[in-house]
Design a binder for these strands. Structure first.
Lengths: 303, 303
DNA sequence: ACTAGTGAATAAGATTTGATTATAAACAAC
DNA sequence: GTTGTTTATAATCAAATCTTATTCACTAGT
């Protein structure tokens, strides 16, 4: 882009993530490039900016000072661009979004496509990771904002409920349940069940939900545990069992008829997708526009 | 150097000098390079920053906004560097000095050499021009500070008396006056006189001084008017006449005996060299050090 | 109006900076 | 020790930046 000091941006991200390699993912550079940028800064100021001691990276006193100023400088770059954009009517820039697995893979791509259609000049950057990781990046200010499942509670983050997510039971189209709209929790325990891997937000939610309905995971006939939504859908399509995933994740397959979605009779499986923003965020013009778009977007048209 | 955004620096200087070519002299780039830098900025913001109308350059609304922010950003870069310098004990950076003809050619070079000796890492940049021009550059903030003859009075400039300058009568070593210490104004009118060109600060001072002593320029036997101090000294050395110049300018020749300096009986021809600073100047660490050095420098050792 | 003269834009080339892949070194965890 | 993870270094390649040479646009002077 060129409307900000790239070296300072890289430096700040390293300071925030405390990692050269994570920075390289976020900025979309290779790790050596990040090392070189920081080294270049250290040479111009003739002062080490980070202590690279074994397993952790910390800012040196010089680094602390530079970080404070760099952050303010970057804020001014963003503000200048915003102000000029107001005058020229031009909206451009770069948005760094973080999305947790479900929302990142199945909701945001559609939103981003629609957004790019309205604002072709704005570059959108999507990073998909688990909720914890996205929260971390937001809390240190390494990305502009995040969209995650559930309602994380953290200091240094502003949280806003954005849209509701509903989980559904998925079955293959020729399954006995395929004609039904609802099934009971009791019925669920009779069928081979495929579950997400330990650590996933969706699995966590499902476990809790079933517990509320008086059912343990061990009551289900769990036939396998898979490490990704796509693999779960594939397994269900091929008849290996049924599963529970977000309606957003099953959208396409339901539309094309390769999967059927059902609700539980007892209660809807609802959770929120939350928008999380760093406190004292640098909100540039592009980020502003994206947030406005996000809030006004009609998510139902996706379903 | 790399410890500031070069594009913004160039842009600011163009905005201040209202000239691409003058900027190129100050920043030590070629004129096309300046054009390209500004064009690059105009492309990134997709907005013209200057109106290039015939003979004058003005900031567009976008340009005005960017200038405001750019100035603040550059100030922060300088401040960051200063703060880091305090921690590391390193003093470096770049000073842009403007000097009017006499002080620029005959005083500053010595000061700068002594300064570089103490602070080898600081880059000093000397621009020699007439008083008016130096004042202009200072008043718009295009150079860090200026040293000029006389006491200019201008808004937007902070003025400080720095050192005294004394003008002396110079004669060749075998001239009848060479053995004397003083001569009278009356005597001066009897000798062929060589004078600086119209427009020079020194000529202006000499004319005024003689007027105060009741003598018009036309009372002198002016044999020639020369456009530079070196040519005047040469003319006096070769016996074409006598002249009046700054003691600083005659220092070397008096030391080597190729010229003799005399004072006027009636009154000393004194004027001040003034230090002029832009209001709201960006004083970086290097500038700070140079100013301190300037004020503590023992100018007498030069005489 | 024609001709310098001045100041900015453009073109083509060289140099420097920046990024990439590949690889090595340092360190923790098993 | 061996493995895996993270940063640093090396070599290569692409892109940005500066330079010289030239052209263009506009004034000013004759």
């Amino acid at each position: 882009m060129g409307l900000e000091d790239h070296k300072l941006k890289v430096f700040c991200t390293v300071a925030e993530t405390k990692s050269f390699s994570k920075t390289s993912e976020i900025i979309h550079l290779t790790q050596p490039a990040v090392s070189l940028q920081v080294q270049a800064l250290e040479e111009t100021y003739e002062s080490k900016l980070f202590d690279r001691t074994s397993n952790s990276i910390t800012l040196t006193p010089s680094g602390e000072i530079l970080y404070k100023y760099a952050k303010e400088i970057l804020r001014l770059y963003a503000e200048a661009e915003k102000e000029i954009g107001k005058v020229t009517g031009l909206i451009r820039g770069c948005v760094m979004v973080g999305g947790s697995t479900t929302i990142g893979n199945y909701v945001l791509p559609n939103v981003i496509v629609a957004f790019k259609d309205k604002h072709p000049k704005i570059k959108v950057n999507l990073l998909i990771a688990n909720t914890r990781r996205v929260e971390d990046l937001v809390s240190v200010g390494a990305i502009d904002f995040g969209l995650v499942e559930g309602i994380p509670s953290r200091q240094k983050i502003t949280i806003e409920k954005l849209i509701e997510d509903e989980l559904i039971v998925i079955v293959p189209p020729h399954h006995p349940w395929a004609k039904k709209k609802n099934i009971s929790v009791a019925e669920l325990t009779k069928e081979p069940f495929i579950i997400r891997e330990e650590g996933s937000g969706t699995r966590h939610f499902v476990e809790n939900f079933l517990k509320e309905q008086g059912i343990q995971l061990s009551d289900l006939k769990v036939v396998m545990s898979l490490g990704g939504i796509e693999s779960i859908k594939l397994a269900v399509e091929t008849g290996s069992g049924v599963s529970i995933i977000s309606k957003w994740a099953a959208r396409k397959e339901i539309k094309y008829g390769t999967l059927k979605g059902l609700y539980l009779k007892e209660a809807p499986m609802r959770r929120n997708f939350s928008l999380i923003l760093p406190k004292n965020a640098i909100i540039n013009h592009a980020v502003d526009e994206f947030l406005t778009f996000l809030k006004s977007y009609n998510y139902d048209e996706l379903v």
